[in-house]
Design a protein around this nucleic acid. Structure first.
Lengths: 214, 214
DNA sequence: AATAAAAGTGAGTAATCACTCACTTTTATT
DNA sequence: AATAAAAGTGAGTGATTACTCACTTTTATT
């Protein structure tokens, strides 16, 4: 199975898509992520997909509906691990040390981003301009991620593993550090050589102990 | 002087602009940052500025030239403090403690972002799609900022104030943390209530000592 | 095999796009 | 005050835009 087919299957698991519809989605993802949503014409998508322009509008009422049909499932997919993995593993069978939680959390996100990079780029680009996507992101992703991290941090604070900084600020700092790493790694400097295991450990070390000399 | 006039003067210091040209720039900044560059029409800019559409093209050959004429001066402005302030103050009359350097660096960036927010939004949005802007950003901003931070970190490592993590990784982590804070503060959750002084101190504390209990 | 429903087509459409140009008005130069 | 240059105008341009629709082809249902 090709890379595109894997991405499609990941995103549209149970949805029934015709062959031409799949080609439209693949073409749209490629063009949207390279040129941006507004700068991509439906004509261009149709040509790249090898279908008639009318076929696009047979499946999607508008160009925006095509965009949303691609980005919305991504967000659903993104929030999955937050609810399932982090929650249960930490609270039911918790990682004993905060370090182990961080390591698992970073690895999981790295894996997702690696697979879904073009769609994630589209999401990041269009969230500021599409209220529909913006709302779904804030309510579904940002809020829930934040809430989970709050709970997890509180639990490690109670265990005495973390300092007593307000959980809200601590959460912000942890999230900034992790996503700062992943965004540097995959968006800003994907061309640089990265020793992922090493950088992950340094990121964890930084979160736990900072840069100051003991 | 109105907010817009201050921003204009900051960005276009010595450049001679006619009154109508100023109105075009103000209108363009507003529309580009709200709807995005590609989704903004020159007709719309002209109407908002209260000028004829032809007037835009009297001053700018193309719509893209208008975009670049707004974002390029911002980048020049952004790199200023990196060369002047940080370099001289740290190396000639250095801040004795890394904390003091961080505090000054964060405050300076916060001040700039506060003033230039809409233009910064346009820059962030368009860098991925405009090779001209992308190159200027990587060469002028990213690279020089990184180089300076490397030097500064090295100097504090030599003073024994920082642990011996490779400066490259340390620089990445410091930059992620600072800009993670500023992006959360001004881009993601500008509506939330922020105690800026407190959050700045917590950010510094986090960089220096992490979250782990001593 | 007959029928209906769904998928696919591509020429066509009105609206909008960035940009031009002949012309007028304002400003600077002598 | 005369002249030239610069700034401003707005109707007009061909190209492109998202989207439609009457029609054909493919697939599913009986």
């Amino acid at each position: 199975m090709s890379e595109e087919e894997i991405l499609l299957q990941q995103l549209f698991e149970e949805e029934k898509l015709t062959e031409k519809q799949k080609k439209i989605i693949v073409a749209a993802i490629e063009s949207f992520s390279e040129k941006g949503y507004a700068a991509t014409s439906t004509n261009e998508i149709a040509k790249k997909a090898g279908v008639a322009e009318g076929t696009i509008f047979r499946h999607y009422k508008t160009k925006k509906e095509l965009l949303v049909s691609i980005v919305a499932p991504l967000m659903t997919k993104l929030i999955g691990p937050v609810i399932v993995n982090d929650f249960h593993k930490v609270l039911d069978r918790p990682y004993e040390h905060a370090e182990d939680f961080l390591r698992a959390a970073i690895e999981k996100r790295r894996e997702i981003i690696k697979k879904m990079l073009p769609v994630i780029k589209i999401m990041i680009q269009e969230i500021p301009f599409q209220p529909e996507l913006r709302e779904q992101f804030l309510e579904q992703i940002a809020r829930k991620t934040f809430d989970r991290i709050l709970i997890v941090i509180k639990s490690y604070q109670d265990k005495g593993q973390l300092i007593e900084m307000p959980t809200l600020s601590a959460a912000r700092l942890v999230i900034s550090t992790i996503f700062g790493y992943l965004i540097s790694r995959y968006i800003f400097f994907p061309e640089s050589e990265w020793d992922d295991e090493l950088e992950t450990e340094r990121t964890i070390q930084f979160i736990m102990h900072g840069l100051g000399k003991k």
